[in-house]
Simulated scan of single mutants.
Amino acid sequence: MTSLLIALHVLAAVLLMGPVMITVSTYQGQMMKAKDGDAKALGAATTLHRLTSQYGPLSVIVPILGLALFLTNMSVFGTQGRFHVSILLSVIAWVILVALIIPRQKKSLAALESGDSSVDFADHKKKLSMFGGIFNLLWVVTAILMFL
């Protein structure tokens, strides 16, 4: 059972977190190009947001599988603090994604699509870059902790 959970956990991390980490990192650049009237960039920003908002919430599977793995083999995983920290960091990253990144992307994309020029896209870019960087850093640290 442990081997199956490890395989599912790693597979979910690769298939879900990889694309989300990339879309979170590249959305801001396309948003800024779209702000200047680039129709292709608007299409790219729309696609990136769609991927983030669909894969992002599904990525909760990664910490859930990690927690299931942790709980099924407490004698091995329960005594190592790195697994406690990893679960905590992945949950924090997921909350940042769902509570901060996805709503900001949605708001900026709505402004782009409606042509609302009152939106401060530079501020959106800064905040999305900051939260995206924190999100990605938390996942990188979590991945490193898995292999120590």
Rank of each mutant, 00 (worst) to 15 (best):
D36E: 08
L42A: 05
T72C: 06
L42E: 06
N136D: 13
S117T: 15
L16D: 11
F83Y: 08
M146I: 13
H84T: 13
S59I: 15
I134A: 04
S59L: 11
L97A: 10
I6M: 05
H9P: 12
P103R: 03
M146T: 11
K125W: 14
G78I: 13
T26H: 02
F131Y: 07
L65C: 07
K106F: 13
L11F: 14
S75V: 15
F121C: 03
V14Q: 00
G66D: 04
I144T: 12
G132L: 09
I134H: 04
V20F: 04
R50D: 15
W94G: 04
F70K: 00
L42C: 04
T79H: 02
L15P: 12
K33S: 09
L16S: 07
Y27R: 00
L71S: 08
G81V: 09
M21E: 11
I102A: 06
M31V: 12
L109E: 10
L69V: 14
P103A: 09
S114G: 02
F147A: 03
Y27P: 10
W139C: 06
V119H: 05
T47C: 01
K126W: 14
L89G: 08
S3D: 15
I102S: 05
L51M: 11
Q80V: 13
T72W: 01
S90H: 10
D123Q: 05
L138P: 06
L148H: 06
L138G: 08
L100T: 13
L67W: 11
Y55H: 02
S118Q: 04
M146V: 12
S114P: 09
M17H: 07
I22F: 11
F83E: 00
Q54C: 09
T46C: 01
T52G: 04
Q54D: 11
K125G: 10
L48R: 01
Q30A: 13
M21N: 07
L137F: 14
M130D: 11
S25Y: 13
I22N: 00
A13F: 14
L58M: 06
S25C: 09
I64Q: 04
L148V: 15
S108M: 02
I96P: 02
L97Q: 07
A68I: 15
A41P: 11
V91T: 10
F121M: 01
G133I: 14
N136W: 03
V76R: 00
S75H: 08
I6Y: 02
V60G: 08
V20S: 02
S108G: 04
V14I: 13
L16I: 12
D123I: 07
M130R: 01
H49R: 03
A41N: 05
F77P: 04
F121H: 01
V60E: 01
A122I: 14
K33W: 11
K126G: 12
V119M: 03
I61W: 05
T26W: 01
L137I: 15
P103Y: 09
Y27M: 03
S25I: 11
A111I: 09
V140Q: 03
L145G: 12
L5K: 03
V91F: 06
K106P: 15
L8Q: 02
T2P: 02
T142N: 00
S75F: 12
L58P: 08
E113T: 06
L88H: 05
I102K: 00
L88S: 04
A99Y: 09
D120T: 13
D38Y: 07
I61A: 10
